[in-house]
Simulated assay, not measured.
Amino acid sequence: MNIEEKKTDLLSTFYFRHATKEFDPTKKISDENFRFILEAGRLSPSSGGNEPWKFLIVQSPEFRKELAPHVTGAARSLPTSSHFVIILARKGLTHDSSYILEQLTQVKGMPIEVYKSMEQAYAQFYEDLHLNSERELLDWSSKSTYLAMGNMMTAAAHIGIDSCPIEGFDMDAVNELLDNKGLLGNDEFGLSVMTAFGYRSKEPKRPKTRRPMEEIVQFV
């Protein structure tokens, strides 16, 4: 496949994708295909290379029923989707947190002496971003989870699988539910966003619409 064919293929993926509000409950994503979608999330970029996410795959019908009253934005997609994903964001990622030390030295292979020599630069990075409170740190992690979600949705669309990003939920109520089930670790994570995956029950009523390129792009 040459470059022009690759561009056409990728753009066709974006034209195919739309926010699917209701799925065909009789059609299920294969384990192999969903693993592909998860891999797209795992390989996503994140600020600082921190990978500040965790993906909860809610397949239990009982769990979905418990979740439903708190997720009004998924009234139709939660019960019909093949796979329903809650994306968590890691909390408290300061430059000197144990997780960051492990991520840089164990996962990314940075020698400990290099980390120590760069510690002040990392501290300045956090200061420049004004990450001074728990909420600001969680919001920063959440921004990276949206990159992962976007890649997962694109990967799904690329193989003919539909999706819908979901923000219509009661943050406190869902966090409490997840915490009661022991799914937030030792207060390590907080809810960020949700995504439903499956196969559309019907075709979109109209083709994809967007503002023209000239309105949204400015070269300076």
Rank of each mutant, 00 (worst) to 15 (best):
L101H: 14
L101W: 03
E102V: 05
E102Y: 13
E102G: 08
Q103H: 04
Q103V: 00
Q103R: 12
Q103W: 01
L104Y: 15
L104A: 12
T105L: 04
T105N: 06
T105C: 14
Q106T: 14
Q106V: 15
V107I: 07
K108R: 12
K108C: 04
G109L: 06
G109W: 01
G109P: 03
M110T: 08
M110A: 06
P111V: 02
I112Y: 04
I112Q: 09
I112L: 12
E113V: 05
E113R: 06
E113Q: 03
V114F: 07
V114P: 06
V114Q: 15
V114I: 09
Y115P: 04
Y115D: 05
Y115R: 09
K116H: 15
K116T: 10
S117C: 03
S117K: 07
S117V: 01
M118W: 07
M118E: 10
E119C: 06
E119Y: 00
E119H: 07
E119M: 11
Q120W: 03
Q120L: 09
Q120N: 12
Q120R: 09
A121R: 11
Y122I: 02
A123R: 14
A123C: 02
A123D: 06
A123G: 03
A123Y: 04
Q124E: 12
F125R: 08
F125D: 10
F125G: 10
Y126S: 04
Y126D: 11
E127V: 01
D128C: 04
D128R: 06
D128H: 13
L129G: 03
L129C: 05
L129V: 01
H130M: 09
H130T: 07
H130E: 11
H130W: 04
H130Y: 08
L131K: 02
L131G: 04
L131M: 10
N132C: 03
E134P: 14
E134N: 15
E134T: 12
R135E: 15
R135M: 13
R135L: 11
R135D: 13
E136D: 15
